[in-house]
Design a protein around this nucleic acid. Structure first.
Lengths: 150, 150
DNA sequence: CACGCAGAGTTCCTTAAGGGAACCCCAGTT
DNA sequence: AACTGGGGTTCCCTTAAGGAACTCTGCGTG
């Protein structure tokens, strides 16, 4: 399919897609996050082809999102989130928020998040890191940054 | 390639991926958001194949993320974000935040966001919609929700 | 010590999706 | 009547996803 390499673009969206933009990758991260950390567990949970799962895991490990770790003297491995990968899970929580709002329908959200700090069922909200006020698509101007030079 | 249909899974991540998970879709939304709203503009900016762009735009319109709107008496159309689509841009801002932090390197972020409310260059931060405290992957318990029934 | 087993991948074939270039259609403009 | 430009189609080629079968490695058991 000779897919275009997004990493070359001067765009953090494209670069992020280069890491987790391939089919299944976000779902694999979700699985690892919720505790499916072994090859056969992930494969069984998602129904993904073993070949593709191998490729995705290798790719995620190569990009430092997952770490492959032996858990036995036999050749047995589990995949764990690195710090870089854990911060990607934040992105998944935002995806969940959007999906819950626009796609869940009558049945309601498939999963809920309980926030440790307050103990309540909640969801993420986007705020400005500087002033703490809501920060959504319409609340910002987009300007060229230092990494935009040709 | 007979790609698996994620929409069937009881998972808001999978459902969201069904809408914008295909290659290029997030970048198309970005383009529309920053003002590339016409077919040839997007095609030229991204270097995407015209065939694939047609498919993606149709898909995004079908899912209510973009709206196709005539802007001339001639058959000329532009694509604009719906409310549903605008809220997806929030997701892109989070992707940008992660990409800026982990992938931008020495050159720094390619684009910057200035927040209207405070006028400062900033980025998004995830907060609990209930209590306002930070809400990241490690700050939550994941529980089954109403939409999880078989 | 041979056998079996389970985890973790490979291999191989089929099918469908992305890339790219060429082509087409429509409604003004000259 | 020909030209132009936006907005797509068509067609072919290559590559990636699906899927099933196969392999390899070390325990564990008889």
């Amino acid at each position: 399919m000779q897919r275009t390499n997004f990493a070359e673009l001067k765009c953090s969206i494209a670069r992020t897609l280069d890491v987790i933009g391939e089919p299944w990758s976000p779902l694999i991260l979700r699985d690892v996050f919720v505790g499916f950390t072994r090859f056969d567990q992930i494969q069984g949970d998602l129904g993904i082809s073993r070949k593709v799962l191998t490729e995705r895991l290798d790719h995620l490990v190569a990009h430092g999102v997952l770490e492959r770790r032996a858990y036995d003297r036999r050749p047995r491995y589990e995949y764990v989130l690195t710090e870089k990968g854990t911060e990607l899970v934040d992105l998944l929580m935002v995806m969940v928020g959007w999906g819950d709002k626009w796609l869940a329908g009558e049945a309601g959200p498939p999963v809920l998040y309980r926030h440790h700090a307050c103990g309540e069922i909640s969801h993420v909200d986007l705020r400005c890191a500087h002033c703490g006020e809501p920060m959504h698509a319409g609340d910002v101007d987009v300007l060229p940054g230092p990494g935009s030079a040709a």
